[in-house]
Nucleic acid binder design. Structure first.
Lengths: 349, 349
DNA sequence: CAGAATGACTTAAGCGCTTCAGAAAGTCCA
DNA sequence: TGGACTTTCTGAAGCGCTTAAGTCATTCTG
């Protein structure tokens, strides 16, 4: 920048103004500065130095629970992050991805401490993930998505419990009584197998707990004893990882006539497993998903599921980010609704 | 940092060393410094200031062609980026996502100029995307994936042409002569419809061109006139966007008996369309994909496709990044192989 | 036509760290 | 016992920018 200034014969401040505050100098001088910069091969202010001076980095740290391919194999994340990115992009913010370390339920604390970002967005991290304390230690503003509310941070979530209850009610109304629950990864050390109700209720993931509670409460109210409800945990977040547990659920005697699945991915895996076993869906088995990701609509059969407006959730998170960055005070925790969408994967018992 | 130094009664340099070069001070003084920092509420060196002093940001800019949900709806990207991330993460590098602007075939140039990153990785951008010149202007090292080689930058690609040729040969050997090509988005202003061979050959995306050439060359050599081969472009990268064109391809008289699809996603869309039309795959229609993404194995029927080792590609890109960051000189362009995987979506004509 | 207002630049003080070249003190060995 | 090393810590010069405050002409006002 000094070189450009010298070349034009002005001060460094003027060159800076040419880039940042065009109203501070005459249009022609600005042109001259820009021309000299181009000639010299100066591509504009160094972003890091600018950040140091302005204490703005233009990046939003996105804290993930898993590695990237697992994270993005869930369309719910893609849609949410895309909506978030679309909101913040015009303001010049980019997303800095911090994948989980595979153990602590989030990225390592030191990654947070070293990340260049103005704010952190945590997406469905495990309760008490060290990454969250690191965010606080650094004094970074925080937006959490699908996690318990943390004092001092903004939160956007989903009506998980109500949605799950609606799914359970739907199956009950269709006359199902032998209902299995297909849970997402839930234990600290996921083993991918049958879970006790206690284990299932103590997942370290907030949305798991809520959905589980919604299912079990509703079933119990209808007189289906919780002890009669088999609960299996998937051993991984991908369809592949889920298949063994899906087979486990369907391999019981008596076999469940319906499955409550904590995500569409799990539901799709369940349908795939059923097909392999020669069971027809929904003839022999009804399946309900959760999320309503795009593939749910195109699956065979189209999936009955609990729809949450993922894009709205992402946009809301984006607005929260922008608000906090503007210095506005932390708004109250918010929730997007969840509603049952009945398609063709469920039928009368 | 000065406050911590004062509290302990040492110089700022010593505090810095406590964090960065523990061998430069006695273990007990280091402990004392760290304790004082904790007490004062100092979370460690400010990342931006550290970056300015070291001229290292710890971030890798990932340049994408589309928005995030489109980008990540392609498992090929997720797998590749995950592998890349897994390689660079232990070295403390995170990924900074720069989505495309929807027009120029990449992110806006100013985003590149303002991004805090040590290096850029471009993933299948359109030829001549302004983002690429911006990278050069800034003097950032560059690794390109699935793009034409750019002087001075590292490149990793796939044997697209050979893979496409193998796919075409497979169909020919099964006796197919009425073969359609289902192309990915290819025009600057994708309209999602039938393409002339000239249009198809001039895609602004390198891998499109290569795959198309591989298909057409092989068909021509076998005596199938290019003019007899219908080529349709998908209008978007998602399954939803692809369906209309899939119907278009299948709505012809005479109907193709086989489809060469430029990606597994397109192949899946084609199978879905065929099902809606009451056609059996592979009975009435053979379908070949490209990429061999995880869902290809679980589809109904499992997909015959061209496998590329996406994880290896991502890892290779990661190694290139690390090498360039270490200051090693740019290695020669490299390619991962592509090989046909025959599953159940193809059969004799 | 004096004094206020405006426009166009410059000065200089940071932003919060890293790191190299010492200085001071302690250790070793012939 | 004194010179050569080590070890441990400090001083100070940056890293490349932004921006509040200030200077100096010019242009308006009444």
């Amino acid at each position: 920048m000094d070189d450009v200034a010298d070349a034009v014969g002005v001060s460094r401040a003027t060159v800076s103004n040419a880039y940042n505050r065009p109203d501070q100098l005459s249009a022609q001088l600005r042109e001259e500065v820009l021309r000299a910069a181009k000639k010299i091969g100066y591509a504009g202010p160094n972003p890091t130095a600018r950040s140091l001076a302005t204490s703005r980095t233009g990046a939003i740290a996105v804290l993930l629970d898993t590695n990237l391919s697992t994270a993005f194999s869930d369309p719910a994340l893609s849609v949410t992050l895309d909506a978030l990115s679309t909101v913040v992009d015009p303001e010049g913010h980019a997303l800095l991805l911090l994948p989980g370390d595979g153990e602590s339920g989030g990225p390592r604390a030191e990654r947070i401490l070293a990340a260049q970002a103005d704010i952190a967005v945590a997406y469905s991290l495990a309760d008490g993930a060290p990454a969250l304390s690191a965010v606080r230690d650094r004094g970074l503003p925080l937006v959490v998505i699908d996690q318990p509310h943390i004092r001092g941070s903004a939160r956007i979530g989903v009506a998980d419990r109500a949605g799950a209850a609606a799914a359970a009610r739907h199956l009950l109304e269709l006359g199902h009584r032998r209902i299995g629950i297909f849970s997402a990864q839930c234990l600290s050390a996921p083993r991918g197998g049958e879970l006790s109700a206690a284990e299932a209720g103590n997942s370290r993931f907030h949305d798991n707990r809520e959905r589980m509670a919604g299912y079990l409460e509703t079933l119990a109210e209808a007189g289906v004893p919780v002890t009669d409800v088999p609960i299996w945990e998937a051993s991984g977040l991908s369809v592949e990882g889920a298949l063994p547990s899906a087979f486990g659920l369907l391999d019981r005697h008596p076999r469940p006539t319906a499955l409550l699945c904590m995500s569409d991915l799990l539901a799709l895996a369940a349908i795939s497993a059923a097909r392999h076993l020669g069971l027809s869906v929904p003839g022999d088995l009804s399946v309900v998903g959760f999320d309503d990701v795009p593939p749910a609509r195109w699956s065979e059969p189209p999936l009955t599921t609990v729809r949450q407006d993922l894009a709205a959730k992402g946009r809301a998170a984006g607005e929260l980010v922008l608000g906090l960055l503007r210095g506005e005070k932390t708004p109250a925790p918010a929730e997007v609704p969840a509603e049952l969408v009945v398609r063709d994967s469920t039928a009368r018992a």
